[in-house]
Each structure stands twice: as C-alpha cells, then as structure tokens.
Computed example of a mutant assay.
Amino acid sequence: MSKVYFEELSYIEELLASIEHSQLFVLADENSKEHCYPLLKNHLEHHQVIEIASGEKHKTLDSCNLIWNALTNATADRKALLVNLGGGVITDIGGFCAGTYKRGIRFINIPTTLLSQVDASVGAKTGIDYNEYKNHIGLFCEAEAVLVNPIFHKTLPKEQLVSGYAEMLKHGLIADEKHWQDCLENGSEKFSNELIQQSVKIKEDVVKSDPTEKGLRKILNFGHTIGHAIETHLLNTENELLHGEAIGLGMIAEAYISKSKGLLSEQEYKLIVEELWKIYKSPKIEKASYAEIKRLCKQDKKNQNGELNMSLLKNIGQAIYDIPVEEELIDQALNEIL
C-alpha cells in the first residue's frame, strides 16, 4: 500500500531522489496549476506540466487522451514519473493514465483538496467516468507515495472543505465513533494534520485488510450508492453538487435505509441526520427523477446478480456490507432528503 507522508512540500525532493526516473511530469488542472503549483515548483527538478480542465465532467476518456498524447509527444518511457497535483479528479485520472500508459509508469499523488487528502488519493483506486456512470472504468493501482499538507487548504473555497468533511464524517460513522465526535467538535472550516491523519488511518486500515474490495472495503462506500447517483444526475445542471455534498445527502438516505431495515436504532439515526442536515442542503429534484436516480444506483459496483446491494450502518462506528435493498426503500429514502 502507498506510504502517506504528512510532511512539508520540500519533502518531494527526497521522494524524487528515492525513485529512479527518466523524466518528470506534473498533472494539474487550471485551478491547481494557478494556486498550488507555485508552492511546489521550486522543489522540483526539470519537468513538464500537463494541464487538463477541472471538474467531474472532465474525468473522461477525452482528458485521458490529452494526458496520453502529452506523454507520447514527450517520448516518455516506462521510467517516466507522473506527479498528480490536484483534487480527487486529478488523482483518479492521473493514476489511471499512469497505470495504463505503456502498461504502467509510476506516479506520486499530492492531493490539494481536503477530500482528495482523506479519501481519493489514498487506497489505490483510480479511474474515470464513462458515459454517465461514475468511476465506471478504472484500475487498482498504487501510487509510489502520497504527500499530504494542509497548506493547500488556504487555496480552497469553503464549499471544498465542506465537501471533504463528508468523507471524514463517513470514516467515523463506519469505523470509529470517536472520530465522528472529533470531526463534529472540529467543525467544517479548518483541519489539523492530526485530524486528517486520523481519517487517513481509518481508510488505510480498511484497505489493508481488503485491498481490492472483495469484502470489508465495501463499507467505505456507505452513502455512495445514492450519493453517486444524485451527483451524476445533477452533473452539468444549475443544481450541480460537489462530491462530498452529494455523499452527505447519500449518508442521510442510507442511514434512513439502515434504520428501516432494523439495523440502526431510531436514536442514532436521529443523531446522524440532525448533524448532517446542519451541513448539507437538499437540492431541487422532482419526484419524476427518482426513476433516473434508481437506474443510476443499479450501476453501482457493489451490486451482484441483478440485486442492489448497499453498505449500511449498524450503529455509529460500525458498518456492514452486501445488504440487499428494495427499490421501494430507495424511494422512501429519497423522500427523506429531496
């Protein structure tokens, strides 16, 4: 599993010295290139920057072609090294392109958003969206290293921190009640290295026990079956949500399903939704869209043999996986959040 370093940005010099490479490339979008790259570039040897457009709607094969073409035109060989500098879209697509270019070159993740620091850049999942389906094409592909530093939070709007906060709260809900409480006490606007490290450790511990998501790792998807469907449904609309905003709503919906299936107590359900409603707001979605959201849920990677499966909560701090969920229950859950 990739080693995660909580160090100053200058530590990239030591990492680069430890990895034999022929050429160095940096992948960024227009935002991370403008705001984050200037903090890093003086610590890098000679390199080439590859820029793609920001946002989930650009996590596509078209962006992959741009990256692969840039590497090819630079005659990058199999010893080339790619540094992914950005949020979850950059680390997802950068890892995927590195893992497939010439059957695999090495890469380092330097996540610049809170969400990518605590979730997207850790755990070896890479990939892109395909047609309308989120993370539909991808690889399990380990980064050589992940370098995390909260200095990049200064470059972020508040909504990006709130988005990342959702994944931290999720880590507490599925595996560590104390972390849930610590996150609530901390709030959604400023995060210490210590709190980020707690969240990363929870994910690392789960991933180490099940690297390729055959079982326990599925609990990391709590809130994501419905959350991903809502995120995809609203993509490119005036009500478009950030990933964590959609996952916040997904957690409320899937906590409702957990309660309805007799897994989660009414008391803990109320505690969870009370806290999540303080942070995440319901978008404008008509009931006529429920069928589309359920159709998207049916493409979730946890499903098997035509059965819709979810990871649900038994209590705050414990999740279970592969729980069959009926479509009628999804309708009820959507009524709770939309």
Rank of each mutant, 00 (worst) to 15 (best):
M1E: 02
K3C: 05
Y5A: 06
E7V: 02
E14Q: 12
E20R: 15
L24N: 01
F25I: 04
V26I: 10
A28Q: 00
E30D: 08
S32I: 05
H35Y: 09
C36D: 08
Y37D: 06
H46L: 12
I50G: 05
I52S: 04
I52M: 04
G55L: 01
E56C: 05
L71D: 11
A76P: 09
A80I: 02
L81W: 00
L81A: 00
L82F: 00
V83C: 01
G86C: 06
K102R: 13
R106Q: 12
N109S: 13
P111H: 03
T113Y: 02
Q117G: 08
V118M: 05
A120C: 10
D129R: 11
Y130G: 09
K134T: 06
N135L: 08
N135R: 10
H136G: 05
H136C: 10
G138Y: 08
L139E: 04
F140N: 00
F140H: 00
E142M: 08
E144Y: 08
A145F: 09
H153D: 10
K154V: 00
L156K: 01
K158G: 01
A166G: 13
H171M: 10
G172T: 03
I174N: 01
I174H: 03
H179F: 14
W180A: 02
Q181R: 13
C183P: 02
L184C: 14
E185I: 14
E185R: 15
F191P: 00
N193K: 14
Q197R: 15
Q198N: 14
D205Q: 14
V206Y: 02
S209F: 06
P211E: 15
E213T: 11
R217A: 04
G227N: 10
H233G: 02
H233N: 05
H233E: 06
L234E: 04
L235P: 02
T237N: 04
T237F: 04
N239H: 03
L241Y: 01
L242C: 01
G244Q: 03
I247F: 08
G250E: 07
M251S: 10
A253E: 07
E254H: 08
K259S: 07
K259R: 15
K261R: 13
K261V: 13
G262Q: 06
Q267V: 12
L271N: 11
Y280G: 06
K281T: 13
K281P: 05
S282L: 07
E286D: 15
E286A: 14
I293H: 06
K294I: 12
R295M: 07
R295A: 11
R295N: 15
C297A: 03
I316D: 10
G317F: 07
A319I: 02
L329K: 01
I337G: 00
L338Q: 13
